[in-house]
Every structure is written in C-alpha cells, then in structure tokens.
Computed example of a mutant assay.
Amino acid sequence: MTLTDTDLVYLRRCVELAREALDEGDEPFGSLLVDGAGDVRFEDRNRVKDGDETRHPELEIARWSAANLTAGERAEATVYTSGEHCPMCAAAHGWMGLGRIVYAVSSAQLAAWRSAWDLPDGPVLPLPINAVAPGVPVDGPAPELQDEIRRLHKRNAGRA
C-alpha cells in the first residue's frame, strides 16, 4: 500500500519523538498509537539510556493498549513508528492484536547503515515484522523521511 499524506503526518511526529529521544541521550526512535477515528491515543520515544534495553516505544504502546483499549479498539488502531519494530516489539504487537503498522525506515535499512558505520550488530536479528507477526498489516518504508532518520542514527552512532 502507498503511504498517504495522513500517514506521513503521523510519521513526521514519530521523527520528532526520535529526535527528542536522541537529544535526551536515548536511541532515536519514536512511535504513536492512532485509533480508528484518527486520534493519537498514546505516543512515546525510546528510553533505554538507563540500561533497560526493553524500553522501546512500540513495546510501551502494546502495554498501554492492554490497559486502556478493548480488543476491538486495538484491532482498529494503527501504530506509526520511525523504525520498523524489532522482533520483541513485533511479538508484543501481535500478542495484543493491534492493527496496522506503518514505519518510516526498515530494520534492513538500519542494519545496513550500522554496518556502513562499522558498528557491531545488535543483539537481536533485524527480522521484518511479518517474520514474527505474520498476520499484521505492515506498510513502509517512507522514502521521504529516510535521509532525516539516517542523520539521527548517524549522530547517535557518533556517540557510540
């Protein structure tokens, strides 16, 4: 599916959250949960700087949705994110029955950038979302945002 102008508005907010995370000393990732009516119900950014590597915004969305949405509301929701879900977050998304995922850059793109910058591989394989949660509708990447997100990750790589 082609990303819509509305999708890009939400993804740009995810990039803002990713920038905020980086400015606060975290890795540059940000995500939104948008309900079926188009209202942002929850947003978060990466919060791993204190040592809990599971503090991904996509996992926080899954947790928040469990406490605040019905199964029907979760199924109608869309998760927008600056980077494709890691396997941990994809599994949480699938277990919670959340709807569509739209991401700005893929795990494969991020892995290629990290390799080009001579950074070590992450501790988890960069699998595509549907390799972990095959029933989830997924759209992305958004070429319009790739350069901006690459710059954020390159800035983060310079801190490593």
Rank of each mutant, 00 (worst) to 15 (best):
Ala18Glu: 02
Arg100Met: 12
Glu73Ala: 15
Phe29Val: 14
Thr6Leu: 05
Gly122Lys: 13
Arg55Met: 15
Glu84Ser: 06
Val34Pro: 08
Val34Asn: 09
Pro128Asn: 08
Gly94Tyr: 08
Glu20His: 01
Ser31Pro: 04
Ala62Trp: 09
Ala71Thr: 12
Leu98Asn: 05
Leu69Phe: 04
Ser115Cys: 04
Pro123Arg: 13
Ala91Lys: 15
Ser115Arg: 15
Pro137Lys: 01
Glu58Gly: 13
Tyr80Asp: 05
Glu58Met: 05
Asp44Asn: 14
Arg74His: 09
Tyr103Trp: 08
Ser106Arg: 10
Val9Glu: 07
Phe42Thr: 03
Asp52Val: 13
Ala37Cys: 00
Glu148Cys: 04
Gly99Ser: 08
Arg159Pro: 01
Thr4Cys: 02
Ser115Ala: 15
Asp39Gln: 11
Ala90Tyr: 12
Pro141His: 09
Pro134Cys: 07
Arg12Lys: 10
Arg55Leu: 15
Asp139Gln: 10
Glu148Ser: 12
Pro123Thr: 13
Gly99Trp: 08
Cys86Thr: 14
Ala92Met: 06
Ala111Phe: 09
Ser31Trp: 04
Ser115Pro: 00
Glu27Pro: 00
Arg47Gln: 13
Val102Tyr: 07
Leu11Pro: 03
Phe42Gly: 02
Gly36Arg: 06
Thr6Gln: 06
Gly72Ala: 13
Ala116Thr: 14
Gly51Arg: 07
Ala77Phe: 05
Thr70Gly: 14
Asn46Gln: 14
Ala21Asn: 04
Leu119Pro: 02
Gly51Glu: 11
Val40Met: 10
Thr78Ser: 10
Leu59Ser: 14
Pro134Gly: 11
Tyr80Ser: 05
Glu60Asp: 13
Val48Asp: 12
Asn130Arg: 15
Asp121Gly: 08
Val102Leu: 07
Arg41Thr: 13
Gly30Trp: 04
Ala157Arg: 04
Leu22Asn: 03
Arg47Tyr: 04
